[in-house]
Design a protein around this nucleic acid. Sequence first.
DNA 1: ATCTTATATTTGTATGTACAAATATTGTTT
DNA 2: AAACAATATTTGTACATACAAATATAAGAT
Lengths: 159, 159
Amino acid sequence: MYVQILFIQMKIEELLKTNNDMPDSKKLVLNIIVTANFISEKLTEVLKPFSISSQQFNVLRILRGQKNKPANLSTIQERMVSKMSNTTRLVDKLVEKNLCERIVCPSNRRKIEIRITSKGLELLKKLDPLIEEIENNIAGKINKKEILSLNTKLNELRS
Amino acid sequence: MYVQILFIQMKIEELLKTNNDMPDSKKLVLNIIVTANFISEKLTEVLKPFSISSQQFNVLRILRGQKNKPANLSTIQERMVSKMSNTTRLVDKLVEKNLCERIVCPSNRRKIEIRITSKGLELLKKLDPLIEEIENNIAGKINKKEILSLNTKLNELRS
DNA sequence: ATCTTATATTTGTATGTACAAATATTGTTT
DNA sequence: AAACAATATTTGTACATACAAATATAAGAT
């Protein structure tokens, strides 16, 4: 006996239960937002047992990307996936958990230097494969060529 | 003299200033989130002068879609673009602004009936063309065929 | 009729987001 | 040097989001 796995692919109209037909441009805009929410939910779910929010995770990855060079707040802010206006309080949470440290920059006391701690690096090491799995699961639904073209078209939408 | 308009199309890697090369699956996931943020920002910007958040706008549109049939909280919740856990407080804000009204359902007092007011309908009438313009501007960056295929692929990613 | 379970909504708490204003420090001008 | 402008960060406020617990009502079981 074969086990038949049923993939239910919900179209965006079905998902939002709008019976009226929408123009495709509206459908596209909603679809992107709904898909982003879908992805964010998966990521949040994985991060939850580690008591870290996706924004906090984002900051940690940026800090690791600095390769021992400390980052200041504005650097972090401009590299964030979703620009947010309160990196101060986000870093506060990470410092509380000993995942990063903040030192007032000696040369320019307006700046602060933020570094990931070894505890932060360890956490990322544990999280990396879990995040990768989600990314592969999602992107794996379409083939390589389609991934590339999707990336290109999304870039175009933002141009 | 011709005026040359330069369209700068930022690839996702450039945008996030990550010099290291990412796997395409990771790029795709980030790209969707960044593009959704991009769109949300545009929408929020248009709604701002009307002192209404995009989630409040979302609720109003759902209420209008009910065509005089009142909605209860759970109906609104399941139709929201981004599921959120506090429709109560969202409706509170709309009631405060007289954009919708809530009445305890006479047949089942656990339920409440939420209706859009005429003031709410008027507001939506003003907002509709502005929102449509944004949607057309964004989707207009690619052609009709590409919009359709993008919609299909996004649906697939969520399957 | 009372007890239990299910349903619908509200409230509480912590965190995140957006924006403006406040503070601190440095650099520049007069 | 004092005044002013520029830069970097923090703080305040309102709103949004996520989740759990509390409340209220209705329907079914004993």
